[in-house]
Simulated assay, not measured.
Amino acid sequence: MGTDGVTNLNDFLQWLIDEKEECTTRQLTLRVLTLSFASIHVCSQTCTQVFYNLAANPQYVEPLREEVDTVIREHWWTKKAMVLMQKVDSFLAETLRLEGVLTTSVQRKALQVLTLSDGTFIPKGTHLYVPTYVFHRDSAIYENPCIFDPLRSFRLGEDGNESGRHQMVA
Rank of each mutant, 00 (worst) to 15 (best):
L30G: 02
V71W: 00
R31S: 13
C146M: 11
P145K: 00
E94V: 05
Q167T: 05
Y129C: 05
N10R: 13
L98I: 04
N144G: 02
E21T: 03
E22I: 05
Q86A: 13
L128T: 04
S39D: 13
D89P: 00
T115E: 15
V101S: 14
M168S: 08
N10H: 12
Y52A: 08
G157H: 02
P131Y: 09
D69P: 00
V130R: 08
V134F: 10
D118F: 00
R31A: 13
W77M: 10
G2P: 01
V134W: 13
M168R: 12
R73I: 05
R165W: 02
Y142K: 03
V134N: 07
T24G: 08
V6G: 01
L116A: 05
V42E: 15
D159V: 05
L111W: 12
V61W: 06
I147G: 02
Y133N: 06
F121H: 07
F154E: 00
P63V: 03
N8I: 04
E67A: 11
L96S: 05
F148Q: 01
G125S: 02
T70N: 07
M85T: 06
V50P: 02
E62S: 09
T48W: 03
V6Y: 07
E66S: 14
E67R: 09
E99H: 15
N161A: 09
Q45G: 10
Q45L: 13
P63Q: 04
A110I: 02
K124V: 09
H41Y: 15
V130N: 06
T7R: 13
V130D: 07
D159P: 05
P145S: 00
T103Y: 07
W76C: 10
E21R: 14
Y52T: 13
T120H: 01
K87L: 00
G157N: 10
S36I: 14
T70L: 08
A38H: 10
T103F: 04
F37E: 09
N144K: 05
Q59H: 11
S139L: 11
D159Q: 11
K79M: 15
S153F: 05
Q14V: 06
S153Y: 01
S90M: 01
R73T: 06
V68G: 04
Y52E: 09
L35D: 08
V83I: 13
R152Q: 02
Q112S: 11
W15A: 10
D149P: 05
F12C: 03
I17M: 08
R137A: 00
P131M: 12
Q49D: 08
C146D: 11
K80H: 14
V61G: 03
F37W: 13
G119V: 02
S139Q: 10
F121M: 03
S153W: 00
A55G: 11
V50E: 04
P58Y: 07
E143N: 09
A38I: 15
I72A: 08
Q49P: 04
T3A: 11
R73H: 14
I17D: 01
P150L: 04
G125W: 15
A110K: 12
T25F: 12
L33D: 15
E94R: 01
F91H: 05
G164I: 02
H41W: 14
N10K: 14
H41F: 15
G125Y: 14
H41E: 15
A170F: 14
K87Q: 04
E158K: 10
F91A: 01
F91S: 00
Q107C: 07
C146T: 08
H75W: 09
V113D: 13
T78E: 14
R31G: 04
I40P: 00
M82P: 06
W77Q: 06
A56R: 10
D118E: 07
D149Y: 04
T95S: 12
